Amino acid sequence: LPFFTTDMKKKFFANLWLTFHSWSPGIAIEQPDVSELLKYDGARTIKMRPWSAYTRTTQFQIENEKVTLTVSIGQTAETNNAENRGAYNLGKVYTFFRFSFENAQGFEKMEKYYIIARKIVAILTSQNNICFEEVYLSQRNSEQKYFKTGICKIFDSYENYSIRQWHKVIPIFSVFDYIPNLIDGIVNGKVNSLLELLPEDNKMVNRISIKNVQDLCTALEVSYQLDDKRKREKDALIEELKKNIKNTIAEFTKAHNEIDVNKETTMSSAFQYLDYTLKQKILTLYNENSDIVDEIVSKYSLPSVNENSIASFVKLRNNKTHSGTVEWGESAKIYTPLFAIVYASFFKYIKLPDEVIKSTLLQIF
C-alpha cells in the first residue's frame, strides 16, 4: 500500500473485506413467479431478496479485540444506472467476508485476519489453493455507507486456484453458529494437521502420494488427542498402567539402592511414552465415527474399514519410514474414509452436532 503516509500506516481500517465465489451467491436472488417465466418479450426482472435473508453475522475475540464477522452477498454494479441500462452485462453478485472492528487496527494485523478467512474457506472447500477476488479496507461515512480506503494485493505460491463448485463444498450457513469455535481452533493451531492434508493444486485433487499417507497418519494421531476434555475408558487404563509401573520401579529402587534405575537404565524412557498403537487409535476413532465413515465407504464402494485394513494402511507409512519401500496394493483405498475421520474429529472438537457433521462431510466426500 505505497500511497499511505507514515502516520496512516500506524493504524488502519474499521473493516476488512474479502470477496470470493466459493458458495452460490444465487441465494440472494429472488426466484421469479410463473408469470415472469412465461414472458416472451425478453423483458425479465432480476430482483434481490431482502438483505436479512442472506446475511449472517457473528462475533469473536482475538487477543482481547472484539471482531464482528459478516458473511453476505454483494453486487459489482448498480443495475438501474445510466451506465448499465440497456447493457447485456448487468454486473455480477459475489459472496464476501467482512471483519469489522470497534478500534483501529495496526497494519501488521491485516495478514492475521486474511489467514483466518483463508483457512475458514479452505476447511469448508477442502482445498488450500483459495483465492479471494478482492481484498480491501473500508470505513463508514456519516451516512453509514462504506467506502474503500485501500486495495490490497495478496501474493501466494499457488499455481492455480480452487475451482470447486458451490454444491461440492460445505455451506457456510450450515456451520455458521460454530464459526467462533472454528476460528478459535484456527488461532490455537488445532486445525493445522487437517490443513496439511488439503491439496494446494487442482492436479492433486483425488490423487494421493505416500507423503499424503504419512501426513494422514500424523493427523489421525493428532485427532485422537484433539479434545483433552474427552477421556476414553482405555486411555484411563493406560494411565493406570503407567502409575503401576512407576510404583514397581519405586519399590525396586528401595530394595536395590546399588543401581540408579533412572540414570543407569532405560527403564524410565521405556514406558514414559507408553501408549496405544496408531492402529488401535485409528480403530477407536473409526468406532466413534462409523456412521459417517460407512456412508462414505458405501458411496464409493470402498473396502471396509476394520482392524485388518487399518493395519495395512499403517504398514504403508511404516514401510516407507523404515525401509523406503512402498507397495500400495489395496491399502490406500481407505484413505478417503480415514481422511473423513480427521474432519469429523475436528468438527466434534468445535462442537458441531453429529447430524450436521454427517450431512456436511457428505458434501465434500
Results as ranks from 00 to 15, higher is better:
residue 165 Q to E: 14
residue 157 S to W: 10
residue 157 S to R: 13
residue 173 F to Q: 09
residue 202 N to Y: 01
residue 217 C to A: 12
residue 212 N to G: 04
residue 144 Q to S: 12
residue 142 S to E: 11
residue 184 D to T: 10
residue 234 K to M: 08
residue 146 Y to F: 13
residue 149 T to W: 02
residue 155 F to D: 14
residue 183 I to G: 04
residue 197 L to R: 09
residue 157 S to H: 14
residue 207 R to L: 14
residue 153 K to M: 06
residue 153 K to R: 09
residue 159 E to S: 14
residue 221 E to R: 05
residue 232 R to A: 06
residue 172 I to E: 03
residue 159 E to C: 10
residue 175 V to S: 05
residue 160 N to K: 06
residue 143 E to I: 01
residue 199 P to S: 07
residue 200 E to F: 06
residue 165 Q to K: 13
residue 209 S to P: 00
residue 213 V to S: 05
residue 211 K to L: 13
residue 142 S to I: 12
residue 161 Y to L: 06
residue 162 S to L: 03
residue 212 N to S: 08
residue 142 S to T: 09
residue 212 N to Y: 02
residue 187 V to W: 03
residue 174 S to V: 06
residue 222 V to A: 08
residue 144 Q to C: 02
residue 200 E to W: 01
residue 151 I to T: 14
residue 183 I to E: 02
residue 144 Q to D: 14
residue 232 R to G: 15
residue 167 H to Q: 14
residue 162 S to E: 04
residue 152 C to H: 09
residue 223 S to R: 01
residue 187 V to Y: 09
residue 184 D to F: 05
residue 211 K to R: 10
residue 216 L to P: 08
residue 152 C to I: 15
residue 154 I to M: 10
residue 161 Y to F: 13
residue 196 E to P: 00
residue 165 Q to N: 12
residue 233 E to N: 05
residue 198 L to P: 02
residue 200 E to M: 07
residue 166 W to C: 07
residue 201 D to H: 08
residue 212 N to W: 05
residue 186 I to A: 01
residue 222 V to Y: 06
residue 225 Q to Y: 14
residue 229 K to Q: 11
residue 203 K to L: 09
residue 181 N to W: 03
residue 173 F to T: 10
residue 227 D to T: 03
residue 194 L to D: 11
residue 198 L to D: 00
residue 181 N to L: 08
residue 198 L to K: 00
residue 168 K to D: 14
residue 146 Y to Q: 13
residue 199 P to Y: 04
residue 209 S to D: 07
residue 193 S to L: 02
residue 211 K to S: 08
residue 165 Q to Y: 06
residue 151 I to S: 15
residue 164 R to H: 11
residue 145 K to E: 15
residue 210 I to L: 07
